[in-house]
Design a protein around this nucleic acid. Structure first.
Length: 651
RNA sequence: GCCGAUGUAGCUCAGAGGUAGAGCGCUUCCUUGGUAAGGAAGAGGUCAUGGGUUCAAUUCCCAUCAUUGGCUCCA
């Protein structure tokens, strides 16, 4: 007998070799129906894998990540079985579960391709195989035997994977006619997989290395119930509706032109207005925090970037240098602002009393992003960073760092980004060659970030290998409508550029010291930030920010004069208002302006003229009744105040 | 950069080896209407670009460019 300890710390004895599903059944049938995997002594087990010794147990249902992942992983195997059936001789790479579903990388073989149009046939086969309720069976075999198996199948991918594994036994999972090298865990049988959809297909390098062969990756998602799949697909549809590229066009915020060049956004008047408003908001915050605006040119001598180290690191993959006609002097389009700011710092000798110096610039930079990487406003070749560099003394570093975190939180609060993650990006300890600077300085910089983060009580995840080449970062990631995470704000601690640019200040000891630099950008890039903001709000921007706050809808031509008066009145109150004088019925005007996502619609007809009022309609909420003009203006002003001034006051 | 898909009117999309269509939008006219689409007429396209096959190509083939789903990259 073995002793099983449950999550509530109660204990029960079971025969040795009992399985998770049997234990679940002994508790209740409904638990047994819902459980997908079990965690035995912190290791996730198949429900059907025998438990051989005393253990703690946790039942993983759909709601538990470990349950969901077993489900998706088994789905990937099911898909692979279907692929083997439909494409004999197909070779399998890897097929894991991911954040929202699963994929399998496969090599269909010479001259054979799988395309989007083949997916329904694969789904059909999967459906057929799932109905057979085949059991997933785990088998441990010696590594050598496993290699023989795949040598026979001529599957070089699996052999490569096997060779990288520890010697000893290897686990295999089989169901039906399908066997795969796999760590597991899996569902008891394919019958669990009731609803699934193959979503898209893409090329993916074997083991993520671009020097390797490109395999075909098929993405899918699956659920225990059809309803859940339907909801998921509806969510994806909704995400499509929120796509910033679509909304950007609809609301006339930005566009691209083939003639101007790909990845070079053109801001339309309404988009420019919105962006300017965001910039002004941040400028105001930064003024309060002791920043000074500076302005630097769009190009700089190549030498500048050789000094900073950017040329060595990125020169090859950048826009080529621009040269002067006579002397052939080389200039680069600036890919970043810090070297310019370092030179501004050097304008005059600095005393320890001058520090910290906080230099801010909305600096437009140009980077040659790979063509396949360009995407709407989120990945472009010309963009504007809300950049600033803080030059400070070592004793000021932590405090300055924390103040930057505060600014980022003000921004997130003002724009209602509640769902974000904090990531500490450190260098890859295995690959120090990628970075510049001494170990000592890196350690100091990394320590500063970790301490500041801890002091702010942030629950930060540490990622190795994600640092910039000159220093570690604290990144802020928010989730967009598609559930994709975007890096927005970033704070970086840098001991290296001050050294390379030989920045100094005179200390109280009358000796020269080196300042530390903090690079920071709360929005990150204006382009990317606005893209994420569009998807986050579905284009329904907060009142203070939205390009058009109010639209006046006259019911007939008879009240056009009054409508013009209302417009002038609102303009005098600094409210951004429009008037819809089209020869259309009121229902049509309401519909069109709702679709333009204008926050307030003011309907005026003869009744309003008589009482000097407006009939207020709030976007998405409908009729709010009538107000007199002054009343409405105050009401709108109050809402704006709440969204801006009060947020600034909290800190 | 790599693999796949796509490119037809301002937008969303249909179409076929024989010179192109719908809805929305736009213009004009009728209508002066009270809380999410009133009616009619009209304008608008070198079917991404360049080659090739063909009596004939927007349609088939190739290349380029752009967009797009991923992969790799991201100061």
């Amino acid at each position: 007998m073995i002793k099983i300890t449950f999550p509530d710390n109660s204990e029960r004895s079971f025969p040795k070799g009992i399985t998770g599903i049997e234990i679940a059944k002994s508790i209740s049938n409904s638990l047994a129906r819902e459980v997908l995997s079990v965690t035995i002594n912190n290791e996730v087990y198949d429900l059907t894998r025998p438990i051989e010794q005393d253990a703690t147990i946790k039942f993983n249902k759909w709601e538990d990540e470990d349950g969901m992942h077993a489900f998706w992983h088994s789905s990937a195997h099911l898909m692979a079985e279907a692929l083997e059936a439909l494409y004999p001789g197909i070779k399998l790479g890897i097929g894991p579960s991911i954040d929202n579903g699963f994929y399998y990388d496969v090599d269909p073989g010479e001259g054979r391709t799988i395309s989007e149009s083949d997916l329904p046939a694969i789904e059909k086969k999967m459906r057929e195989l799932a109905r057979q309720n085949n059991q997933y069976v785990r088998k441990d075999i010696p590594k050598k035997e496993a290699i023989d198996h795949y040598t026979q199948k001529r599957d070089e991918y699996k052999i490569e994977l096997l060779n990288d594994l520890e010697d000893g036994t290897i686990s295999f999972y089989s169901h039906g006619n399908f066997t795969d090298l796999c760590r597991g865990p899996h569902l008891p049988d394919t019958g669990y997989i009731k609803a699934f959809k193959l979503l898209n297909i893409a090329g993916a390098y074997w083991r993520g290395n671009e020097r390797n062969k490109q395999l075909t990756r098929i993405y899918g998602v699956s659920f225990p119930k059809q309803k859940m799949l339907d909801d998921h697909l509806a969510m994806l549809e909704e995400a499509k509706e929120r796509d910033h590229r679509k909304i950007g066009r609809e609301l006339e915020l930005f566009t691209f032109s083939q003639k101007v060049g790909s990845g070079l956004p053109l801001w339309l008047p309404k988009g420019a207005q919105l962006r300017e408003r965001l910039e002004n908001f941040l400028k105001k915050v930064q003024r309060d925090y002791g920043y000074e605006q500076v302005i630097s040119p769009h190009i700089g001598q190549k030498e500048l970037y050789v000094t900073s180290g950017h040329y060595a690191k990125y020169g090859e993959s950048s826009f080529r240098p621009i040269t002067t006609p006579a002397e052939g002097e080389e200039f680069l389009l600036k890919p970043m602002n810090c070297p310019h700011h370092c030179e501004i710092y050097k304008f005059k000798p600095r005393s320890y009393k001058d520090l910290p110096v906080r230099m801010a610039e909305f600096g437009t930079v140009y980077r040659y992003e790979q063509s396949g990487e360009l995407h709407g406003l989120t990945r472009v070749r010309g963009f504007t960073q809300d950049d600033a560099h803080i030059f400070c003394r070592p004793d000021q570093l932590k405090e300055e760092f924390i103040k930057v975190i505060d600014i980022i939180f003000i921004i997130f609060r003002a724009l209602d980004f509640a769902d974000f993650q904090v990531q500490i990006s450190l260098r890859d300890p295995e690959d120090k060659e990628k970075y510049i600077g001494s170990d000592e300085n890196w350690e100091k910089a990394e320590k500063a970030i970790i301490e500041a983060t801890r002091e702010k009580g942030l629950d930060a995840k540490i990622e190795y290998g994600e640092a910039a080449f000159y220093g570690p970062k604290l990144d802020f990631l928010v989730k967009d409508a598609l559930g994709r995470k975007w890096q927005l704000g970033t704070i970086q601690v840098d001991y290296n550029l001050p050294e390379r640019f030989e920045l100094e200040y005179t200390g109280s000891d009358n000796k020269k010291h080196r300042p530390i630099m903090i690079h920071r950008a709360p929005f990150g890039s204006m382009e990317r930030f606005i893209a994420v903001l569009i998807e986050h709000t579905a284009g329904k921007f907060p009142l203070w920010l939205t390009p058009d706050q109010v639209v006046i809808l006259p019911i007939s031509e008879k009240v056009h004069n009054y409508a013009e008066n209302v417009l002038n009145f609102l303009k005098n109150c600094d409210i951004r208002a429009l008037i819809d004088l089209r020869n259309e019925k009121i229902g049509k005007k309401i519909r069109d302006n709702e679709l333009k996502r204008i926050p307030y619609l003011l309907i005026v007809g003869e009744k309003e003229v008589e009482n000097n009022t407006v009939s207020v309609r709030k976007q998405g909420e409908g009729d709010k009744g009538s107000m007199n003009l002054q009343e409405f203006a105050n009401f709108a002003k109050q809402e704006i105040e709440k969204q801006t001034e009060e947020i600034l006051k909290i800190n």
